[in-house]
């Protein structure tokens, strides 16, 4: 089963069956993106394509605008007062910065996972059904089916199937994060944005979540911010290296993961991936 290059509908099997692939077709096109808070530019002139079905890792030191960049992709940055975004982000032929788009619908198609697991203070089941109901799914059986599928996709089903009506906050950190991923997947998004999804977890939970992310490859377009270079190298197909230049974040190098890590063109990248800078 392959992913069509066009934007027409395509079918994927159950996560455990489907075949992983990665086609270099831009899913998101970012052109000359700049972000400023209250007039202070934090990220300047970033142009970058995010490829469909691939995992793109954003690496670089803290404070160089990676998270701001990520939040601009689903318009979450607009929530922060005084934040301004300039440039273009093309998604599905629309410019999500300039066109009058429905951000709710956009966010349904571009899911986001946060650094700190944030399951709602509701039952496990309701954490998944609430967003579905919000997007118009009312049928009981369909809801149950989707909940089960999403939990199976993230490998949580066997752990929680007996306590779906228990509080989601009673889960462990790793389980909470996988529930959050399931909550994003249940809406069947096309793109998943992940903001250091493993950094608040212990090493074992982190490993479980990481292998889950790797399995998303080919089925979802994933953009992941991480400070863990080894992790980026393990899971990502593409890597983008951000760096601070005169207190303004900027994109230094973008390319296939192998290239960025093994044969970087920019000396800054080389120093960073070798652990000599940042």
């Amino acid at each position: 089963m392959t992913i069509n290059n066009s934007t027409t509908a395509y079918t994927l099997g159950n996560m455990t069956l489907g075949q992983a692939c990665c086609t270099p077709v831009p899913h998101l096109q970012i052109k000359k993106l700049s972000i400023a808070y209250a007039g202070n530019t934090v990220l300047d002139d970033v142009s970058l394509d995010i490829y469909k079905g691939c995992i793109t890792a954003l690496i670089g030191p803290s404070g160089c605008g990676k998270t701001s960049f990520l939040s601009s992709l689903n318009c979450l940055l607009a929530l922060i007062p005084q934040a301004s975004v300039t440039g273009h982000i093309y998604f599905d032929r629309d410019d999500i910065i300039h066109d009058a788009i429905d951000t709710m619908r956009l966010r349904r198609r571009i899911g986001m996972i946060f650094q700190k697991p944030n399951p709602f203070p509701l039952s496990i089941r309701r954490n998944l059904t609430l967003p579905l109901r919000e997007h118009g799914v009312r049928n009981r059986y369909l809801l149950a089916e989707k909940v089960e599928q999403a939990l199976k996709d993230v490998g949580l089903w066997d752990e929680v199937k007996d306590r779906l009506d228990g509080s989601a906050l009673a889960l462990s950190g790793g389980q909470q994060q996988r529930l959050c991923i399931a909550r994003a997947l249940v809406l069947e998004p096309e793109i998943l944005l992940m903001d250091e999804p493993c950094s608040a977890l212990d090493p074992i939970a982190s490993g479980v979540v990481e292998s889950l992310i790797k399995r998303l490859q080919g089925r979802y377009t994933v953009v992941i911010v991480t400070h863990n270079l080894a992790q980026a190298r393990r899971v990502a197909n593409y890597a983008a290296f951000f760096w601070m230049k005169e207190r303004v974040g900027t994109l230094i190098e973008f390319g296939r993961c192998v290239n960025v890590f093994e044969h970087p063109r920019n000396p800054l990248t080389l120093a960073y991936v070798r652990g000599q800078a940042g």
């Binding site: 509908a9 395509y10 079918t11 599905d92 429905d102 709710m104």
Partner: peptide, 16 residues
């Protein structure tokens, strides 16, 4: 899992 064809972002929302 079926990925339905995404509707255009430009459709008017029924945002409460």
């Amino acid at each position: 899992m079926i990925w339905s064809k995404p509707s255009s972002l430009l459709l008017l929302p029924r945002n409460i």
